[in-house]
Amino acid sequence: MITQILLAVAGLVLLTFAADHLVLGASRLAARLRISPVVVGVVVIGLGTSAPEFLVSALAAARGDTGIAVGNIVGSNILNLTLILGVAALIAPLAVDSAVIRREVPLAVGSVAVFAVAALAGLSPLTALLLSAAAAAALFVLVRWARGGGNQELIAEVAGFEAEGEAVIVAPVKRSAAWFEPLRTVLGLAGVLAGAQLLVANASVIAAQLGVPQLVIGFTLVALGTSLPELVTTIQAQRRGETDLVVGNLFGSNLFNSLAGGAFIGFAAGADRPGTATVALLSAMVFTALLAWALLRRGLRLTRADGAVLLGAYALTLPLLLAG
C-alpha cells in the first residue's frame, strides 16, 4: 500500500511539472509559427492547462477504470468553483468584468450541464461525438469573442505566459533555440502521459485494496491532484490582482474539462462500459457551477463571505459522494 501511495504521489508531481512544460512549449511554438495570440490564449493555453484532467481520465477509461475517469472530471469541476475559487476570495475579494459574467461564465456553466446530461446517459463513443461537436463550437465562439473584442488583456496574458511560464516554472526571458520548444513540447507530453499512467494505475490499486469505490478515489485523490496547477496559478494571479484571469481560467477549465474531457472518456471507454456518475454527484456539480455564477452576478465581485460559502459547498459534496 505504501509503495502504491508513493508511486501515485510521484505520478502527480511528474504530471504537474510535465504539464507546465507542455503548455509553455506549445504556446511558444505557436507564437513562433505566428499564430494569433488570441488563438494561443484560448486554444493552446486553455486546452493545455486542462491536459492533466484529459489524459488522466482518458487513460483511466481505457484501462476500464471509468469510475476514476468520471470522478476526476466531476471532482475537478467542483473543486475549481468551490475550493479553489473560495480560497482565492478569502485571500482578497474578486472584482470581475461584466463581459466575463455575460459571456464566458454562462458558456462554461452550460458546458457543465451538458456534461452532466451526457454522464447520466453514459459516456460512450456516441455521447463523445456530441461532446466533441460542442467543444468545437465552444472554441469557435470563444475565439470569435476574443478577436471581436480586441482582447488586449488576453494578448498581454499570453505574452506574460510565454515570457515567464506558469505555476512552478521559472523560464528565461531570452529567446530559446529553434529546436528547443518542439523538444520541450514532446517531452512535456511524454511526461504527462507517464505521470498520468503512474497516477491512474496506483490509484486503481489503492481503491481495490481499501475496498473504496473508484468514483470516490477519482473525486478526491485524483481530482485534487490534477487540480493542483489551477490552485497554484489562481493564488499567483490573485496576488497580482488579475481577478478576471482567476475567474476566466477556472470557469474555462470547467468548460474544457466537461466537453473535451468528457469526449476523451467516451471514446476511451467504448460502448460496452460507458462512464457514469450518480445523480446526486452530477447535481452537486451543476449546483456548484450555478452557485458560483449567482454569487458573481450579484455584485460583479466575490467577497470573503462568498468564499466561505463556496468552501462550505465543497464540504457538503463529500457526504453526497459517500451516500451515493
Rank of each mutant, 00 (worst) to 15 (best):
A260N: 02
L320E: 01
L7C: 07
W293I: 00
I5M: 15
H21Y: 12
G324L: 01
A284Q: 10
V13Y: 03
L83D: 00
A323T: 10
V38M: 08
V309D: 03
A280N: 12
K174N: 02
A223F: 03
A194P: 05
L183P: 07
N254V: 08
A263F: 05
H21A: 05
D20Q: 08
L154Y: 08
N257A: 11
D272I: 08
A31S: 14
L59S: 07
V168D: 01
T49G: 06
Q214K: 09
V186Q: 01
G275V: 11
D272N: 14
F264M: 15
A60F: 14
I78N: 02
L29I: 01
V114G: 04
L47F: 15
W179K: 02
S258C: 15
A167N: 06
V143C: 07
L290G: 13
P52L: 10
A136D: 01
A194S: 09
F287I: 14
A133Y: 05
A69E: 12
F256L: 09
G160K: 14
R34Y: 03
L320V: 11
A201T: 15
L79Y: 05
G225E: 08
L210C: 08
S27L: 05
V70G: 06
A194Q: 02
L321C: 09
A146P: 04
L281R: 09
L321D: 09
L215K: 13
R184A: 09
Q152A: 15
I84Y: 04
S283T: 15
L231F: 13
G275W: 01
G218T: 10
A177Y: 01
V168S: 03
A156D: 15
S132K: 08
T16Y: 06
L22T: 05
P229C: 00
G165H: 06
T49M: 07
V43W: 00
V56M: 08
L33C: 04
V168T: 12
S253K: 03
L120Q: 11
L187A: 11
L131Y: 12
G122I: 15
F161Q: 05
A113P: 12
A137P: 10
A113M: 15
L320Y: 06
L281D: 09
L221G: 08
D65K: 11
A128I: 11
L142H: 04
G165A: 05
T233C: 01
A99P: 00
R34T: 11
V42W: 00
V232A: 11
G299S: 15
R273P: 00
A133P: 02
G160H: 12
I217L: 15
